[in-house]
Design a protein around this nucleic acid. Sequence first.
DNA 1: GTGACTTTCCGCACTTGGTGCCAATACTGT
DNA 2: ACAGTATTGGCACCAAGTGCGGAAAGTCAC
Lengths: 213, 213
Amino acid sequence: MVERSPSGATPARSSSSALGRPVATSHGAIERAAFRLFATHGFAGTTLDMIAAEVGVGRRTLFRYYRSKNDIPWGRFDRTLAGFRDTLAALPEDLPVHEAVHRAVLSFNDFPDGAEPGHRERMRLILMTPELQAHSVLRYAEWRAVIAAFVARRHGVGPHDLLPEVVSQVSLALALAAYELWLRHPDADLRGLLDDAMIGLRAHLTGNSPAGG
Amino acid sequence: MVERSPSGATPARSSSSALGRPVATSHGAIERAAFRLFATHGFAGTTLDMIAAEVGVGRRTLFRYYRSKNDIPWGRFDRTLAGFRDTLAALPEDLPVHEAVHRAVLSFNDFPDGAEPGHRERMRLILMTPELQAHSVLRYAEWRAVIAAFVARRHGVGPHDLLPEVVSQVSLALALAAYELWLRHPDADLRGLLDDAMIGLRAHLTGNSPAGG
DNA sequence: GTGACTTTCCGCACTTGGTGCCAATACTGT
DNA sequence: ACAGTATTGGCACCAAGTGCGGAAAGTCAC
């Protein structure tokens, strides 16, 4: 049986009716507590018992909010993913496919500078912790599926044909390469890196030596 | 402390001198036993105790041959990787970088038709089992590092610069897309799919509609 | 207020992967 | 026989994750 989050809602119950025992915590509270502990003990050095204690809740309850310890840093990614899908769908139909995908990826990674101060920390944790790197492919697969579905629709082919598969895999590849550098160079602009990655790839594939050093 | 394989050798001790207690098993024996069990119970349904019993060895000993259960299906990937590195290094210097990388990737995946009958089963297991998909990124990272190092050398830049990172990520992306289809279509030619993937990507990036359907 | 109902919490027991420790084992060489 | 050496593997232990079931804490009807 798959553990479901209480009522599927994050902060409390979905607005009105409050039947049954009230929730003891929320996704937000768990994530804040967890990141606080990760910062001082590292991811591996933080046990679920510690997180449960910090939140003030039973260990067993954590599994009702997150399927696994690895899922905590990802937060509520399903929400984010739905937004990504909408972004792609809202793009004008006459936009070339490669342009549409590129723009969607850019806007997906467009965080208002000050708005999400924890975003960098979250991404650093996800991208630099081996256990989480590994776990993340499962999230990436969902992200890729969104792109593959879009490409498949625009080209009138199946989502599991070669082209949609290639485009989604390569889009992820570019994003990961950009993120990697972004984490290493705190002053770099993520969107600029994504652009550069694509330009570099084009030059590489056509046999031209890329411009920048 | 990192657990080391006994003497670092696979079948028995490295040829001549045999000091100390002789080994009780080998990587090959463990893999054969493991795959036998995976076939009937699935990966998750096979415990390390079962594998140890099948091999006729203590559970503790398994960890001297493989760092984790997830590592067993990968076999001795470090060996394979060394070959990959050599292939790249042996390619003529005047070959364009993209051509060199493409050829190396092709030859890396060039298994004599009958020679490796278990290869498909191994890849199917790795690519279709969620736990293994996740674990595999750690192996992929090593593979990518080989490509990144090559690209960096040929371009005279650092291995962590954007271009090497992009090329290695994209090479992996193409390979994964090709493998995905190869597993779904047993009669497909893996090398052909790799070629098609690259052709499709080129067309996509330049805004041309790809040829095939 | 009492009782029925509903939903979440959470403790308990258990399985499994993984690690540290260390004595037992089984060879070689003198 | 005895020292030397490397592997084996049992034991204790930790942490993640799951199934189960009762306790807790609300709402609602009366």
